[in-house]
Design a protein around this nucleic acid. Structure first.
Lengths: 255, 255
DNA sequence: ATCAATGTTCATCACGATTGAACGAAGGGG
DNA sequence: CCCCTTCGTTCAATCGTGATGAACATTGAT
């Protein structure tokens, strides 16, 4: 994976600048130059290039991430089979349960929230666009359970198992065991492992479509506050989630 | 505005490739190379660079836009003052009216849908991430009404007034007149000008915050199907929208 | 008015992006 | 089964171009 130097350095630098802008928030050219240890004039040319393509905007001296990114991000999502067929199911689940329902896709060993729908009683929690580790939430664990074990090891090596709450699984073999039971049951649970006060049920969605289909694994979930999410309720929701997942898989094969 | 050649060509080429991928959808390296008339190996290096930064992903031979774009897009939105304070109002408007409520921001003479909320009866219509002309919808017209006339002319010159329905305003002076009355009333209407069957009311939101505030103009709206959106209903909704807009403006000054 | 900080332009040079050629792998057709 | 095409990938050589420092322009602060 560690391809040495056969990339285009100028392009990479431009993208690095874009990334820095995401971290820094709105910033002046000099601030970014300082942050990245680059000459002011170099920064100037890069920003001009990025601005010309609307990836950044300059507003009286401050540079900001441009809306082209939002536009492209949504095109990226619209190209996903899981999204195109899964969206309706997410809407449906949230409406039926009143809770928050979420769709995730795996990419490079991370999980990305791709779409969500808030039911009437749902926790107010914005997800879309977030990048998550796969080990600390139901969606991610459901994804891991569908990946070949070697790949799982790779991912855990590369991404680690950072702890976000006292309940996060940080031990590799514990996680492996959990993954095995998830694979058997077809659903994954999360009781405050990623966020205190939040519990989830999730099921993986695999794209078996042939040809040039997007083979990546996704997942769909229902999430709610611990107060409402007793063990019984979670169990009761589980079949709904896995049904939805199955339906999505079927529909993806259909086309 | 036509800055000649002082940009970084490699970076620009990489970004062009990203753009091409957005247009083509999932594609092989050769397809993109053909499309842009570039050598296969050149394409290779660019794609490798973009992939290394997760702006594209390669899935058995096919390249796709990467989820990093979605991630960055949402960071871009989260940096917007209008979004941070306007989001809640959009949620509120949609809940109260049962319709679709939308938030827009102007950038480079276009309007970008930044956030939306669907009320219980709302039309199913996904907006977030879309780029719109400013002349053919209520949000855009509300924005135009807040911009200095010279700027409006520039924008109309650069972006034109394409027709999307028979009701679209394609005549410059008609639009100017409309804009004047919008400025007086404080709200803009759209009766099937951008999409047949869809009507909207919108009001502009201006950021008067000092310091390094994002001075751009935004707008908030309510949209619904023509069937439900009689003239009377639109008129009745107008004050709600402009109230919301005012509240957002006030809150933005507050910080 | 002076000074510091930042944005912007210019000319120079060394490095690196592009290019064509060539190899390896995969897939299809005869 | 082998040939042939197509595509992805690597390599070496060159020409072009991005980085750099210096200098000028602009702004705001003291």
């Amino acid at each position: 994976m560690v391809d040495e130097q056969k990339r285009i350095q100028s392009s990479e630098r431009s993208l690095t600048i874009l990334g820095a802008l995401a971290v820094l928030g709105p910033a002046t050219a000099s601030e970014i130059a300082d942050h990245l240890d680059l000459a002011r004039n170099t920064m100037h040319y890069h920003l001009k290039t990025l601005a010309h393509q609307s990836y950044v905007v300059e507003i009286d001296g401050q540079y900001r991430l441009g809306m082209r990114l939002l536009n492209m991000g949504h095109r990226a999502v619209e190209n996903l089979d899981v999204y195109r067929v899964g969206k309706a199911k997410v809407d449906e689940l949230s409406r039926q349960t009143g809770e928050l329902s979420i769709l995730m896709i795996e990419e490079n060993g991370y999980g990305y929230y791709v779409y969500d729908a808030h039911g009437d009683d749902a926790v107010r929690f914005d997800t879309v666009g977030r990048r998550k580790h796969l080990h600390d939430n139901a969606l991610g664990k459901a994804v891991l359970a569908q990946l070949p074990p070697e790949r799982v090891n790779e991912i855990l090596d590369e991404r680690g198992l950072p702890e976000t709450t006292p309940h996060t699984i940080t031990d590799r073999s514990t996680l492996k065991a959990e993954i095995d039971t998830i694979r058997e049951r077809g659903v994954a649970f999360d009781r405050e492992e990623q966020l205190e006060g939040l519990c989830c049920v999730a099921a993986a969605v695999e794209n078996r479509g042939d040809a040039g289909a997007d083979r990546r694994v996704g997942a769909i979930s229902i999430a709610g506050p611990t107060s409402r999410m007793s063990d019984e309720r979670l169990e009761a929701l589980a079949p709904r989630v896995s049904d939805a997942a199955n339906l999505i898989e079927l529909e993806m094969q259909g086309y």
